[in-house]
Amino acid sequence: MTTTIFYILVIAGVLLVPLNLAAGLIWLERRLLALWQDRYGPNRVGPFGLLQVLADMIKIFFKEDWIPPFADKVVFVIAPAIVMVTVLMAFAVVPFTSTVVVANLNIGLLFFLGMSSLGVYSVVLGGWSSGSKYSLLGAMRASAQMLSYEVFMGLSLMGVVLMAGSFNLRDIVEAQHKVWFVIPQFLGFVLFMIAGIAETRRLPFDLAEAESELVAGFHAEYSGMKFGMFFVGEYMGVMLISVMISVLFFGGWLGPWLPPLAWIVIKTFFFIMFFILLRAGLPRPRFDQLMSWGWKIMLPLALANLLVTGALVLAFK
């Protein structure tokens, strides 16, 4: 009985916390960007401007929800939901602590990779169904970018899988009791980080959105809460990648003194802030640079990493 209740609580928590945190992250991002640009950011509404999120939410809910007449209506409506669904599904396999996990799949890592790949559909379909040139260009860029970065995203994680000997995320964390995988798998960490940024379409890899060239890229035609869903989905993606980095490379909930949940929250927030720092610091590359960077540098590196790790694991078995 108590386990059932605990289980329901976990599910509710995993459903609600990322959703609400994603809204909170908008505030965090604005404040941090402002800090790094020597400004204040939203600081008027409520303490430290925290209620700004609420104000924005109210605003976005009451915005006119407009579907352009030239859009493919059904797909147009479904697209923003896909991003939310896939990210939330991926959260299901994330082990926040050894007990707080919705689905302890033995192929958890593959499930995560699959779900984050499915997220591309949201962008592509959203851009395609909008029936506008800018959106189409954004969607095209997104699909090309995601496809090429997906490849080495998976490959960069195989080193971790080899070392832990499991696809189960909980086992991967447990395998890091002695040393966090970031040390033996540093290259894998860097590669996954870069692929993760590309996967969440954050700056500097936000070519699908690229306000300065494509208006708003794939969601140029979206308004109201549908736009908000893309937005929240993006932030949840950031959270997902951050929590996955901590789980896969930084020992997940492992850490001294503090309770496990605190550790994973601290680590996740550290990487979320790093994502925001990237946005504050780096310009957007050109599209061909992005592609050649992905195929010509990252992919060979990921393969080499896999090869060397495999050889070493075999040698020391």
């Binding site: 800090l35 790094w36 020597d38 720092l277 504050a280 610091g281 780096l282």
Partner: peptide, 8 residues
């Protein structure tokens, strides 16, 4: 770049 931005 990232470090310099962080120093802000």
């Amino acid at each position: 770049t990232l470090w310099n931005v962080f120093l802000h």
